[in-house]
């Protein structure tokens, strides 16, 4: 009985062959482009099939014969179906399958065969058979129980992890820290109207420094001290600044407004010493000028 069934199949094939061959003569040619690699496919891989064919004139493709998106077979899911019509009878079908199968050993799998139907001009229905495409599924991890059993043997002692070389990073850290400090100082200096650092010279800072160096015992010391302070006033005023110019000086340089009394005192003292010859003793005068110059230096730096 077992031998009868294949025999009947063979006879049926012989009976159908002429018709099939006749149909094959008129069957449109299908160009199938399968994935380039048929091995090493793993879970999550996406495999694309590209079909293009041209139906005979006045034929109609049966849309319901197209594979349905989301259909799954043997762990392979059709995730995308895109069909474009190329001219009136030409079709391009782009299918994307994604592999979700899990196997611990390599397995031969296939993208399923397809049967696309179309209705010819005479109303007869024909089938375009697209063969399956086979490939080898490769597991992500080989599950070899024997090997797992030997894992303990292969385990190695724990070592202290090697230290990361920090020298370069430390160097750059120092460089950037230096830049931050320099930037902060620069901001401070700019905020003090570029007169913060004594060696960067505000006029009154300069005068104060020079007056500090004077020796009170020197006969010319008082005149020199007045000279330095008058020079500072002239520098800030833009011209010679005399007692009658105090108002315009303060108006022009409001930062010195708070020391108006000291300025008045200075010019009065200057007139007394230099022109009226009524001044007090040298040491006292230089001490007073030192204080005035210091106060005006603070104004100059905007910290008074």
């Amino acid at each position: 009985m077992k031998n009868i069934i294949p025999l009947m199949g063979f006879l049926m094939a012989l009976l159908l062959t002429p018709h099939a061959m006749a149909g094959a003569d008129t069957m449109p040619e299908v160009t199938v482009t399968d994935p380039a690699r048929s091995y090493g496919v793993q879970i999550g891989d996406v495999l694309s099939r590209h079909l293009s064919f041209t139906l005979p004139a006045n034929s109609q493709l049966a849309k319901d014969s197209l594979p349905a998106k989301g259909s799954r077979q043997d762990g392979i899911e059709l995730v995308s179906v895109q069909m474009q019509q190329d001219g009136k009878q030409g079709y391009v079908l782009q299918l994307q399958y994604q592999v979700f199968a899990t196997h611990s050993t390599p397995v031969a799998m296939q993208l399923p065969e397809l049967s696309l139907k179309y209705q010819a001009a005479d109303g007869q229905e024909h089938v375009l058979a697209i063969p399956a495409w086979k490939f080898w599924f490769a597991p992500l991890v080989s599950s070899n129980a024997a090997r797992l059993g030997k894992a303990a043997v292969n385990m190695q002692n724990q070592f202290r992890p090697p230290l990361v070389d920090m020298r370069e990073m430390r160097y750059w850290l120092l460089v950037f820290a230096g830049l931050v400090v320099a930037g902060a100082l620069a901001l401070l200096y700019i905020n003090a109207d570029r007169k913060w650092l004594p060696f960067m010279g505000g006029a009154f800072a300069e005068a104060h420094r020079r007056i500090k160096r004077l020796k009170p015992s020197s006969p010319q010391a008082v005149q020199e001290a007045f000279y330095h302070l008058h020079t500072a006033f002239n520098t800030w005023h833009g011209n010679n600044c005399f007692a009658q110019d105090i108002d315009s000086f303060v108006q022009k340089n409001p930062r010195f407004g708070r020391s108006r009394a000291a300025i008045d005192r200075f010019f009065a003292s200057s007139n007394e010493h230099l022109f009226l010859e009524q001044g007090q003793d040298t040491a006292e005068t230089i001490k007073e000028l030192k204080q005035i110059s210091k106060q005006l230096r603070h104004c100059e730096r905007g910290v008074a």
Binding site: F226, Y227, H230, T231, N234, N239, N240, L274
Partner: peptide
């Protein structure tokens, strides 16, 4: 001249 000539001069 008044604006430029300094007093006390050096």
């Amino acid at each position: 001249i008044i604006n430029t000539v300094v007093v006390p001069g050096k």
